[in-house]
Computed example of a mutant assay.
Amino acid sequence: MCRHDPPCPAAKASDREAARTVMRDDVQGWALLCNGVLLFEDTGELLPDGQTVRPHRPTPPADSAAAA
């Protein structure tokens, strides 16, 4: 799919989120990446083959939550 030089990471690559954004809708909270991945605001993903990737936001360490 990608015609960039160097090419964007493939949809199955571990760094797939580094692909360039082709289209986005900030109101609905999604971005379509050059490799066909649909990336959601909550960090969940829909891959071109229909496979889903659960949201994977980093969580703060337990002791930093207690300090707040």
Score class of each variant (00 low, 15 high):
R24Q: 14
D63G: 03
P55C: 05
V22K: 04
A65L: 15
P7R: 14
P61Q: 09
T21D: 06
M1G: 11
D25Q: 02
V27D: 03
H56K: 09
A11D: 13
G29Y: 01
L46C: 05
P9T: 08
D26Q: 13
A19G: 07
D49R: 00
R57N: 04
A31R: 04
A10F: 13
P60Y: 11
G29N: 06
P48W: 09
P48E: 04
P9G: 05
A66G: 05
C8T: 06
D42K: 00
R3A: 15
S64Y: 14
R57K: 12
F40A: 00
A66W: 09
T59P: 05
D49G: 08
D63Q: 06
D42Y: 11
A66V: 15
R57H: 14
L39A: 01
E45C: 12
D25V: 01
V37H: 03
R3T: 13
D15E: 12
L32Q: 07
R16N: 02
R16D: 04
R3D: 11
R20S: 14
T43K: 12
G50V: 01
A65Q: 15
A67S: 09
D5R: 12
C34W: 01
C2E: 13
A19C: 09
E17S: 08
A66E: 15
C34H: 02
A68W: 08
M23W: 14
L32E: 02
L32H: 01
R24A: 10
A62D: 13
T43F: 06
D49L: 11
S14T: 13
V37M: 05
Q51L: 11
R24W: 03
A18F: 09
E17D: 11
R3C: 11
G50T: 02
D49K: 07
R16A: 08
H56M: 03
F40V: 07
V37D: 00
D5I: 10
A18K: 15
P9L: 07
A62C: 09
A19W: 04
A66F: 10
A67I: 14
C34E: 12
P60Q: 05
D42L: 03
